[in-house]
């Protein structure tokens, strides 16, 4: 341990060249970096900082803006609807993250198993990812129509199940929307997992086979643990995606019934662009930012550790 620390210190010291020298050495990098940094500053850093300033103001589009201090932040803590929206978003993540990862992994295992026409299946599984969300949502809404003529209702009728209201039922609507997102996104998680599966050295499988390990043992002891970096990456992006869910509620339920599908981004959109309450929308976006940040940090701590194979 102390040896490692010493090494690090040594490395740091060696790296600390005088500024001039360092600059001369890296000038070309700065040259290429400069336009990107300008772009980054204008389109990322500035809006980020400015929206923070917005949270302390009553921002009028035209005319005089008022400084109101912490008014919007205080309102956020008392706004039941905002908390309901956060809760809905959390429930959506519960319905969405694990199934998306599981389905993506299963699909990846199928196309990686050497099944015939693997390329064809890959294309089919990936199709929802490249299809426009509006189209997919339209199809989903049509499948899950809450009348007897809806396709899913028609199918479940054969099993003696009564017609369900689906999107018109406050206890089912969020689940149906989560199903839509899983269907839409599983294809891309499949690609990540597929890449991960390809990168696992074949020797490990051969060694396991020689040792007489069963198929399920090989999966749980070799494949699954070695996919850890992929699990981490997919978990992060599906989590962020789930917290940003907006379009399906916007397209299919309008946030209803009775706010059951009002997610935080949907609420933020309503506040900002329907009610023109841009300052409060900025508060909500900061709340969302902190939540995503904290969740990502937690995920990094628990599943983001480097996995050494050997």
């Amino acid at each position: 341990m102390t040896l490692k620390k010493n090494n690090q210190n040594l490395y740091k010291k060696n790296n600390k060249l005088p500024f001039k020298e360092r600059f001369r050495k890296n000038a070309i990098v700065y040259l290429f970096l400069f336009p990107i940094l300008i772009h980054f500053a204008i389109f990322q850093v500035f809006p980020f900082l400015f929206s923070f300033v917005l949270t302390f103001m009553d921002w009028k589009i035209i005319g005089n803006h008022e400084w109101v201090g912490l008014k919007h932040w205080m309102h956020f803590f008392q706004d039941k609807l905002a908390w309901k929206a956060l809760w809905n978003t959390f429930m959506f993540s519960v319905y969405y993250i694990i199934p998306t990862m599981a389905l993506g992994l299963i699909l990846a295992l199928i196309i990686n198993s050497g099944v015939r026409f693997a390329g064809f299946f890959k294309g089919i599984f990936f199709l929802p990812v490249v299809t426009s969300f509006v189209i997919i949502a339209g199809l989903w809404g049509w499948l899950f129509r809450g009348t007897e003529s809806g396709l899913i209702n028609w199918i479940i009728a054969f099993f003696g199940i009564d017609p369900q209201l689906f999107l018109a039922d406050s206890s089912q609507a969020l689940l149906v929307l989560a199903g839509l997102s899983i269907f839409k996104v599983a294809g891309s998680t499949m690609i990540y997992y597929f890449a991960g599966l390809q990168s696992i050295p074949k020797e490990l499988y051969e060694a396991a086979k020689i040792d007489g390990a069963s198929k399920s043992k090989i999966f749980w002891k070799i494949t699954f643990p070695l996919l850890k970096p992929i699990h981490f990456y997919v978990a992060i992006i599906t989590t962020i995606g789930s917290f940003q869910i907006f379009d399906s509620a916007y397209l299919l339920t309008g946030g209803g019934p009775n706010y059951a599908t009002t997610t935080i981004v949907f609420y933020l959109y309503q506040q900002g662009f329907t009610n023109l309450n841009l300052s409060y929308a900025a508060v909500l976006s900061y709340a969302l930012f902190f939540i995503i940040l904290i969740v990502s940090l937690i995920q990094r701590k628990y599943i983001g550790k480097d996995t050494a194979i050997y």
């Binding site: 129509r145 809450g146 009348t147 007897e148 999107l167 397209l251 339920t253 309008g254």
Partner: peptide
């Protein structure tokens, strides 16, 4: 009115 009227956005098909 149709059963899904609670959140329906259109009833064109019907």
């Amino acid at each position: 009115i149709p059963e899904d009227s609670i959140t329906a956005m259109e009833h064109d098909a019907i």
